[in-house]
């Protein structure tokens, strides 16, 4: 009898869980849980506000269209001729491995931030005097010159933004979305799934065996950025002006980034991605971009 009662209660709970597993109404499949249309609107509005803010600061800024920003978002961990796996094996997450100390507009190689700013803005920046360039990036991006709109959207971390970008985002996004603690509701929903929990636990164990202690793969890149910022005086120290000790520390961080990126990427592809895709299919009936 007791077994019957327990079975009945379990059935009730399962039904409740199944009901909860349905995606909430209005939750989109793009960054920050936005729908594709909402993301385009958010990008366009933010860029317009950034351009207006920069104009008020005396700088010329051409509002980038959403395709440019999306190109910057898509450029993350992508280089022509390299698959994502090859990219990760060579450059890790591209955080410290491409660090030069130069602002993104002056980067000549891999730079999603530069792509997301748009070529016209890059050219405008390059014609400025060094002092104006510093002021331009401070006005546009604040302290973290690599947290452009495209990068912030791609990493879903708006907390590192500053300057006019931050000001525009404040008018476009909700306050809780601007916080570092904000978590994509879609990801939160997936992470709440017992299958995902089990997969993450497995991922944690395997990573720990390899010598990396992280709670989730999303924690790795912010950790690398923080380490890089600590090492490079806020990301403004030119590699050419680094001391030998600083250069050695940077090389060590780059090696660490490659190792942790390869391991994490492998584990992500093997363990987390299949479960994530399965849950997404159940929630959204499609794979999330």
């Amino acid at each position: 009898m007791k077994k019957t009662i327990c079975a009945g209660l379990f059935a009730v709970l399962l039904a409740t869980a199944a009901a909860q597993a349905q995606a909430p109404k209005g939750l989109g499949t793009e960054e920050f849980g936005m729908s594709p249309r909402e993301l385009v609107q958010a990008i366009e509005k933010t860029e317009e506000l950034i351009a207006r803010c920069m104009r008020e600061q005396g700088f010329q800024y051409i509002a980038a269209d959403h395709n440019t920003v999306r190109a910057g978002m898509s450029a993350d961990k992508r280089l022509p001729g390299l698959s994502e796996e090859e990219f990760v094996s060579r450059y890790g997450f591209g955080v410290s491995t491409f660090y030069t100390g130069l602002p993104p507009q002056l980067a000549t190689g891999y730079s999603p931030a530069r792509v997301g700013l748009g070529e016209r803005n890059v050219q405008i920046f390059r014609k400025l005097s060094p002092a104006d360039q510093v002021a331009y990036n401070r006005a546009l991006l604040g302290d973290d010159v690599f947290s452009t709109l495209a990068v912030a959207l791609e990493t879903e971390d708006l907390s590192r933004t500053g300057g006019c970008t931050r000001k525009a985002l404040t008018e476009t996004f909700k306050p809780d979305q601007l916080k570092a603690s904000h978590y994509n509701p879609q990801d939160a929903l997936i992470n709440k799934d017992p299958r995902m929990k089990a997969a993450i636990a497995y991922w944690q164990r395997e990573m720990k065996k390899a010598g990396f202690e992280y709670g989730h793969s999303d924690e790795i890149e912010p950790d690398l950025r923080n380490r890089l910022i600590a090492l490079t005086e806020g990301g403004k120290l030119l590699v050419s002006k680094m001391s030998q000790d600083q250069k050695a520390a940077l090389r060590k961080l780059q090696d660490y980034e490659r190792l942790v990126a390869v391991k994490s990427h492998k584990m992500h592809e093997e363990v987390l991605t299949p479960v994530e895709e399965k849950i997404q299919e159940e929630l959204f009936s499609r794979k999330v971009q």
Binding site: M34, S35, F173
Partner: peptide
């Protein structure tokens, strides 16, 4: 009552 998720 129910607006866009992010865009104000």
């Amino acid at each position: 009552a129910a607006g866009p998720a992010a865009v104000k």
